[in-house]
């Protein structure tokens, strides 16, 4: 392994990717046993598993570069809300099924395009990670697109719920296209892609599915930012309390 290309990746940038995957995976796993139908219960938890697996790979690398002898579990369970660098959209409560699917769709479309760029990274780990993850995200995008069409172009009730979800979630989509400090550093170092030029392509991709779903793509207005710099909504603390309790109470517990 070439160590010179590896060290050009700021740990904070890896955490941004890892935390977003972990938190979204944790949110999705809340659907376990609560899905509207059995197949969807399985689909959402399988997707959660992919995200959590991806976060494990990223945390391992972050721990390695950090060099303080931590492992992926330390990264996930022994940091507090202000240390987390996930995008705010990941920590929003699941809402109804339409809300969860709308978030999945907007996120998967973004992540799919982003991973395609990340795959070109000269950093061996990042390109390998992207190459692996993109195969999974392609299925997430396909799955959520299908449901956006089905629910958007469904009953008046399902249409209305989808339109509502879209309006609620949209102000959280700008964060992807607004690089945080550590991300800017990764871009300067050449290890991460600039997300800004992806906005147009993302909008086109989203619009093509939404129009089939008889939904109108919202205009960009005020966008919530700050997650990538550790400023979170009140929801994250409650999530972490739930997720981290056992390792906080019994550090290093295994079973």
């Amino acid at each position: 392994m070439n160590t010179t290309t590896r060290t050009a990746v700021p740990v904070g940038f890896l955490l941004q990717l890892a935390d977003t995957s972990l938190i979204l995976g944790q949110r999705l796993s809340e659907w376990c046993g609560h899905g509207p139908i059995l197949e969807e219960d399985i689909a959402l938890t399988n997707t959660a598993l992919d995200y959590i697996g991806q976060s494990t790979n990223l945390y391992k690398q972050a721990a390695l570069l950090d060099g303080r002898g931590q492992d992926e579990d330390d990264m996930a369970f022994h940091r507090d809300a202000w240390d987390f660098r996930n995008c705010l959209i990941a920590e929003l409560p699941n809402g109804d099924y339409g809300f969860t699917i709308t978030r999945q769709f907007l996120y998967s479309a973004w992540y799919y395009l982003y991973l395609q760029q990340l795959r070109q990274s000269p950093d061996e780990f990042l390109s390998g990670f992207a190459e692996k993850s993109i195969k999974e995200v392609r299925y997430h995008l396909q799955h959520s697109s299908d449901w956006v069409k089905r629910l958007g172009d469904g009953t008046p009730e399902s249409h209305e719920r989808m339109a509502h979800a879209l309006a609620e979630i949209w102000p959280f989509t700008g964060e992807w296209f607004t690089p945080a400090e550590t991300e800017l550093e990764a871009i300067r170092l050449g290890s991460a892609p600039d997300p800004v030029p992806l906005r147009k392509e993302w909008r086109n991709l989203v619009e093509s599915v939404l129009s089939e779903a008889t939904l109108t793509i919202p205009e960009d207005g005020f966008m919530h930012l700050g997650g990538k710099e550790g400023r979170h909504t009140e929801y994250l603390g409650y999530m972490l309390a739930d997720m981290q309790f056992l390792q906080r109470a019994y550090p290093g517990a295994k079973w």
Partner: peptide
């Protein structure tokens, strides 16, 4: 197809 996701990932 019934579901994109089945008994295992």
């Amino acid at each position: 197809m019934i579901s994109q996701f089945g008994s295992t990932a």
